[in-house]
């Protein structure tokens, strides 16, 4: 019997995910609209992720500042610390770290939840109950992920900058007003917009991959664990790939 090579399996998986994403794009604007479920998912995916995203963002800002400070002092540009940290957080670290945390928390949750629903026939039961399970389960979750990740990234950026402000003041003394002025004065539209736009794509990737892995879960409870795990791993890799592409595109469009 013909056995597929790892490359063939990988390409087949990529193709399946692309088809799944295509099905989402075709289905999301067609009625019936599952508005109540979408709002519920926004609450779960967005609001309930805020404490974790906020905490990691705060630590990230604080640590980044403390790590950068010695080098900045060596070069005699300590006063530019808020500007450098601000650019690093808003352009790159904030969106990417938030997306990775989001992939870990939400990607695994969606993968495990849908996987468990699949193996216990809950998805079939939904279909029998006159519900399109793809719209009810997948479209709502992916849309919620697309909408909530940018919001979380903005909040995470703000909390990170506050962490950075505290980091600056551990070994120095800068007023919040001055810190904020240095951050904002050195941030341009070109820094904020591409970073903001790519978070929509990160959300889309986490939502689609989490749903795909859960929706196609096999092998009983073992499969549920695998779905959750692979949803996080694949989402994380895809986040970096999107980030790489985003840099190239923004470069090409002259945003850098």
């Amino acid at each position: 019997m013909h056995q597929s090579t790892p490359l063939q399996l990988f390409l087949a998986e990529v193709g399946q995910i692309a088809r799944f994403a295509g099905k989402f794009l075709l289905q999301w604007f067609k009625p019936r609209y599952e508005f109540a479920e979408f709002i519920r998912q926004c609450f779960i995916i967005g609001y309930q992720s805020l404490p974790l995203v906020g905490l990691t963002g705060f630590i990230m800002g604080l640590v980044l500042t403390l790590q950068l400070r010695p080098s900045m002092v060596d070069y005699g540009v300590e006063s530019q610390l808020p500007a450098i940290v601000g650019i690093a957080i808003v352009r790159e670290i904030g969106p990417v770290i938030t997306a990775l945390i989001f992939a870990g928390k939400i990607g695994s949750r969606i993968g495990a939840e849908l996987g468990s629903m699949k193996v216990t026939e809950q998805i079939d039961a939904m279909e029998v109950s006159g519900t399109n399970p793809f719209k009810y389960l997948v479209v709502t979750r992916v849309l919620a992920a697309i909408c909530m990740l940018p919001v979380l990234a903005i909040l995470s950026d703000a909390i990170s900058l506050y962490g950075a402000y505290l980091g600056v003041n551990i070994k120095g003394s800068t007023s919040f007003r001055l810190f904020w002025m240095l951050v904002v004065d050195n941030l341009a539209f070109n820094d904020v917009l591409p970073a903001f736009i790519k978070t929509f794509f990160f959300g889309f990737a986490v939502g689609v991959i989490g749903c795909y892995k859960g929706y196609n879960s096999k092998k009983g409870t073992e499969g549920v664990g695998q779905s959750a795990n692979s949803a996080v791993v694949i989402s994380s890799v895809v986040i970096f790939i999107i980030d790489l592409l985003a840099v190239q595109i923004t470069d090409f469009l002259g945003f850098n």
Partner: peptide
């Protein structure tokens, strides 16, 4: 359903 399929 055999597994009852109640929504958890």
């Amino acid at each position: 359903f055999q597994s009852n399929a109640l929504y958890d």
